[in-house]
C-alpha cells in the first residue's frame, strides 16, 4: 500500500508536470516551441561544464576504490552505520554530500554505474542526492555574496538538517526498496 502510493507519485509526477507547463504555456499563447528550444540550448553548456568536476572526482574516487583504500575506511565505519541500514558503499556519499555538489554527483554516478541503477546502493545514493544539499558551499557563497560574516545559528541548523536528511534517506530507501 505504502510502496504502491510512493510508486504512484513517482510515476505521475513528471508527465503531469510537463503537461502542466506545456499546457499553461499554450494557454497563455507562449510560442512554446521557440521558447523551449531557447532554454534547451543551455543544456549542452551545463552538461559540458560539469565534465572537469566529474573527471576530477571520478578519477580520485576510482583511485581510492580500485586500490582497496575505500574498503579499508568503510570497514572501519560500517559497524556504526549498519545499525541504521546504511550499506558501507554509501558512506562516502554521506561524507561528501555536504562538502561538494559535483563530488556527491560523481559518487552517485559512480555507484550507479558500478552496482547498476536498480541496486539498493544506487537507489539510496540517489535519494540522498535528492534530499540533501551542499551545505558548506551554499552558506559560503550566499553569505559571502552579501558580506555577512557572523552566520549565527545558520550552520548548526543546516548541519542538523543534513544529518536528518541522510538518516531519512537511508530509512525511506530501506522501507520502499529494501
Amino acid at each position: 500500500m505504502f510502496q504502491g502510493l510512493i510508486n504512484g507519485v513517482s510515476a505521475v509526477a513528471i508527465p503531469i508536470l510537463i503537461l502542466a507547463i506545456v499546457g499553461h504555456g499554450w494557454y497563455k499563447k507562449v510560442k512554446v516551441y521557440e521558447v523551449f528550444t531557447e532554454g534547451a540550448k543551455e543544456g549542452f553548456t551545463v552538461a559540458v561544464r560539469i565534465i572537469p568536476f566529474l573527471v576530477a572526482i571520478l578519477v580520485a574516487i576510482g583511485s581510492f576504490r580500485s586500490s582497496g583504500a575505500l574498503d579499508l575506511i568503510t570497514s572501519l565505519l560500517a559497524p556504526m552505520t549498519s545499525w541504521i541500514g546504511m550499506p558501507g558503499e554509501v558512506i562516502p556519499m554521506a561524507l561528501m554530500r555536504p562538502l561538494s555538489g559535483s563530488g556527491a554527483l560523481g559518487i552517485v554516478s559512480e555507484l550507479t554505474t558500478t552496482y547498476g541503477p536498480d541496486s539498493l546502493i544506487a537507489r539510496m545514493a540517489a535519494v540522498m542526492e535528492g534530499s540533501t544539499e551542499t551545505t558548506f558551499y551554499i552558506l559560503a557563497v550566499y553569505f559571502g555574496s552579501v558580506g555577512v560574516k557572523k552566520t549565527r545559528h545558520a550552520l548548526p541548523a543546516a548541519l542538523t538538517a543534513d544529518l536528518a536528511g541522510i538518516i531519512a534517506a537511508v530509512v525511506v530507501t530501506q522501507m520502499v526498496f529494501g
Binding site: A20, T37, A40, V46
Partner: peptide, 19 residues
C-alpha cells in the same frame, strides 16, 4: 546533455507563461 536540455527548455516555458 539531452535531459538537461529538456528541463531547461520546460523551465523557460514556465517562466514565460507566468506559471
Amino acid at each position: 546533455i539531452g535531459i538537461m536540455a529538456l528541463w531547461l527548455g520546460l523551465m523557460r516555458i514556465a517562466e514565460e507563461s507566468g506559471l
